[in-house]
């Protein structure tokens, strides 16, 4: 009995460590968010369920690298929307993202994607400088990306449509509020382009939830062969 009692603190410590940093052993999965279509099969077999995905995108990051949905094939990513001159919530939001990055940045199955909503101002050098000021200047898996690397006149329209699409991919239309582009939400997207979680970066409990749920998604990705994200 004494031995069992002596084991209790280490058991509790192990549980703590596992719950905060590692995927649970059982196959717990995060829900796939958003609308789904049930499509009957021509052969009369069980109907296929098709889940909403983030739309096709084409971005350029701080290194001048072109990013599409395919760039994230086989990897999950955490997405947010910011701009370099934002004096409001962006600094706090990016500080929270940095916290997540410091904990999970070494994971090969994970990337970070911060979209600027000020493409006219946030050129590639500005984005590179922003990453450097954040202390992640050499990070290759945290992309600070723009829809307007070549002065596209509709770059701002495109990024706002993309932001809205992340939300509508995550929530049924009737529930989708506006303002996703600047409300401090992080979206967790899986290796197949499904939104698996939305987190309010301004709420520490929500960021903690992301820290707990991320390993669950990474374990799911590890359990299957790399999928192909939608292009």
């Amino acid at each position: 009995m004494l031995k069992r009692l002596l084991l209790l603190p280490s058991l509790a410590a192990a549980l703590l460590t596992t719950a905060c940093t590692e995927a649970p052993k059982e196959a717990v999965k995060l829900p796939i968010m958003g609308e789904r279509d049930v499509r009957p099969r021509a052969d009369g077999g069980p109907a296929d369920t098709v889940f909403a995905t983030v739309p096709a995108f084409r971005l350029t990051d701080q290194f001048g690298q072109v990013l599409t949905n395919k760039s994230f094939a086989g990897r999950a990513y955490v997405a947010d929307f910011f701009f370099a001159t934002c004096p409001g919530i962006c600094p706090k939001m990016q500080a929270e993202m940095l916290k997540v990055y410091k904990k999970f940045g070494q994971q090969q199955r994970l990337a970070f994607l911060s979209h600027t909503i000020d493409p006219a101002h946030d050129s590639i050098p500005v984005l590179r400088d922003y990453a450097e000021r954040l202390g992640v200047g050499t990070a290759r898996n945290w992309h600070f990306a723009t829809t307007g690397a070549h002065g596209e006149p509709t770059a701002r329209d495109t990024v706002f449509q993309l932001a809205q699409a992340y939300f509508t991919a995550a929530l049924p239309d009737k529930q989708a509020p506006g303002g996703f582009a600047h409300n401090g939400t992080f979206a967790l997207v899986d290796d197949q382009g499904h939104v698996r979680g939305l987190y309010d970066s301004l709420n520490p409990k929500e960021v903690d939830r992301l820290l707990v749920e991320l390993p669950v998604l990474l374990a799911e990705i590890d359990s299957r062969k790399p999928g192909l994200a939608r292009q």
Binding site: C86, G88, I117, R156, D157, F160, Q161, A163, Q164, G178, G179, F180, A181, H182, N183
Partner: peptide
Amino acid sequence: MAETSKLYEYK
């Protein structure tokens, strides 16, 4: 800034 999304939706 949150309202800016609405500007672009209307646009």
